[in-house]
Write a protein that binds this DNA or RNA. Structure first.
Lengths: 225, 225
DNA sequence: GTCTATAGATGGATAGAC
DNA sequence: GTCTATCCATCTATAGAC
């Protein structure tokens, strides 16, 4: 369905296998790599693991992406752009809804809701989010450089928060934004497991809108103090 | 000074080098490994890197620790125990100070202050803390199993918080504890760098008692909501 | 574009001399 | 306990047939 233009298939005498969309293998590699990296870590997953998982030959990674690191970087860029787009869209809607001056709560919702919605195992985004969280600690030098220097999307959130709390010293606003990001980056499989053990099953992360509300409540209270 | 009993040195005809404390090499390896792991990550640092950094021979890691993973686990266990001891001690003092029922703020201080004090570059703990933070995302299976199952030290904090806020649904208490831990785990070199870039130098993490106060303020507000 | 085969580098671990 | 030399597994990347 999503493998390109299927109208070519009928006329090809060589059958279906040879006329796969030229991007099919590339997409298989991309998806397998993202999943394995997200679950097992960047360094522990080899090109062999990826190609075996994708069911393609070993040389595919280098042919389609040049190198393992380039593949990593491409996944990172794509998912980062998608997440930032969702966040900025929500922030923009909040700005319009509040006549140019969104509340702290509306800003925090735009920051928090998109990545938490990605946690839903019923959706197609859980793997991408775990990949992005992992890239923060294990990323290549290129990825860390991108994270360090590209603060353009956070810039908007910081400016909105500064405008919403002009009475606060700016460094307080920045520190609190840092704390909220820490809350978000902690949403890993392993941390949920630990919390689940500690609470003896009381905490279930299945209710994502509820989790968003809990996080926004907590963060908002911290910002309004 | 700390390399054993120096009184033996004067009588040894073979000189200083051969009569080093038998633990000297072991300690050199331990320290070099912790530092390299903390800065560069667990997978990226090889046994060769460690022994070169320590100025000892390649076989030292296997002789003194058995394997690279065992060395990692030993560092992890030692630093985890030290951090937990400092936290539990502060919690115990808060319990005594408050006649058995410490406030939310006192509990949070016991949870937050020790690891943030370890951030001080003037102290000897900065590397250990970065190692511990990294172990959360990159740890071996043994380390992750230890993190998952050994919640005995967090158990005390959770119980204290449940007692301090008996009016809250327990799952709310657990989630908020999870949020506070996220704030703590985000205190990595790279995240401070990013925050520093975003705030154009306004946020300086040099004032650790100030940072503790900011974090406790934020977390307390979130808990009292 | 796909595949096999392999080059070339690096890793953890160990044997054995001292 | 320490060191050198080395085994052997594994990795990334590429050459070259199809």
């Amino acid at each position: 369905m999503t493998d390109g233009d299927p109208t070519d298939l009928g006329d090809d005498p060589e059958g279906v296998v040879e006329v796969q969309d030229e991007a099919a293998t590339r997409n298989l590699v991309f998806a397998a790599a993202e999943r394995l990296f997200a679950v097992h870590g960047f360094q522990k997953v080899s090109v062999r693991d990826i190609t075996a998982e994708a069911g393609v030959n070993l040389a595919s990674v280098n042919y389609h992406f040049g190198a393992k690191d380039s593949l990593l970087l491409e996944i990172f860029r794509k998912r980062t752009a998608e997440l930032n787009r969702a966040r900025v869209k929500m922030l923009h809607e909040a700005v319009e809804r509040h006549g140019g001056r969104p509340t702290v709560r509306a800003i925090l919702e735009a920051l928090i809701a998109p990545p938490v919605r990605w946690l839903d195992p019923a959706g197609p985004r859980l793997i991408s989010l775990q990949f992005l969280i992992r890239s923060r600690g294990e990323g290549t030098e290129q990825m860390r450089e991108a994270l360090r220097s590209d603060v353009s999307h956070l810039r908007r959130f910081a400016d909105a928060l500064l405008a919403a709390r002009p009475d606060l010293p700016p460094e307080d606003v920045y520190w609190r934004l840092h704390f909220v990001l820490g809350m978000l980056h902690n949403n890993r499989f392993a941390e949920f497991d630990r919390l689940h053990t500690l609470s003896e099953g009381l905490t279930r992360e299945a209710d994502f809108e509820g989790l968003i509300r809990r996080m926004v409540d907590f963060a908002e209270a911290g910002f309004l103090a």
